[in-house]
């Protein structure tokens, strides 16, 4: 039923291969003259992802804490969860459209779009991580008369720190990938160049840009893997 509805017809792939070969023929070899431009553009994309993740993390932490049912009553957690759910509904590309309309073209719109999505997504991951912490230290500290603030500072944050850092790293990796297409709607980064060269059918330049993105994502994944191994194992 779905296959019929979605027009899934495998035999269409065979004649389509001809178009793929034409595309690859145009794309090879990648245009190396674009190397320095690609590096600058990918650096901007990385900065958008970094700033977006950092600010999003800072915003999501209080929302994550307020959304945890083992710390606050439903009167607090439900509105916070609804808010986080609402901002998570829109992907960062749509947020980028909103901010480009609001503040104009450029990487600032990309940063704001990344902040919004990161806040919604990390906020949810964080309240789930906080709800999963061992309840015993919370109860012990409550039994000793610790204030809510002290509980958060000395139990919740240390007990969930590994999860929070791991999630922030994951979110940065995700944001690097997501930020590459924010330029399609004018929100800065390498996506702007990819979209422009695609429009002029200059596939060798597009391929060069995609290669740079590919290598960057691999390097970021490797670095974050190393950070996880180095700092997130309890020693």
């Amino acid at each position: 039923m779905c296959g019929w509805h979605l027009d899934i017809r495998p035999f269409k792939i065979v004649p389509g291969m001809k178009n793929l070969f034409t595309l690859l023929n145009d794309a090879f070899p990648p245009d190396m003259s674009l190397f320095s431009v690609s590096l600058k553009a990918v650096a901007e994309t990385l900065q958008i992802a970094y700033m977006g993740t950092l600010l999003g993390l800072a915003l999501s932490l209080p929302f994550g804490i307020l959304g945890a049912r083992n710390l606050f009553s439903k009167r607090v957690t439900i509105p916070v969860r609804v808010f986080l759910g609402a901002i998570r509904t829109m992907p960062s590309l749509l947020w980028a459209v909103v901010f480009v309309i609001m503040i104009g073209l450029g990487p600032f719109a990309g940063v704001l779009a990344t902040v919004m999505y990161t806040t919604g997504y990390l906020g949810k991951l964080q309240y789930e991580a906080i709800e999963g912490i061992n309840p015993e230290p919370l109860e012990a500290m409550s039994g000793m008369g610790a204030s809510k603030f002290q509980l958060i500072r000395f139990v919740v944050i240390p007990e969930s720190a590994n999860h929070l850092i791991s999630q922030a790293l994951f979110m940065f990796e995700y944001n690097v990938r997501a930020s590459t297409i924010l330029g399609f709607v004018g929100a800065g980064g390498i996506g702007f160049y990819i979209s422009a060269y695609l429009r002029y059918l200059e596939y060798d330049k597009v391929f060069m840009l995609i290669l740079i993105v590919f290598v960057t994502v691999l390097v970021i994944d490797y670095i974050s893997l190393k950070i996880r191994d180095r700092y997130l194992m309890i020693k």
Binding site: N134, E136, P137, L138, E139, A140, M141, S142, G143, M144, G145, S147, F154, V155, P158, E159, A161, I234
Partner: peptide, 22 residues
Amino acid sequence: DLISLRHQIGYIPQNLGLVKIL
């Protein structure tokens, strides 16, 4: 009032409730 009362009561729960990372 309960919090100020608890300040005068030491409490060791069954599984101790220590923050393991500290």
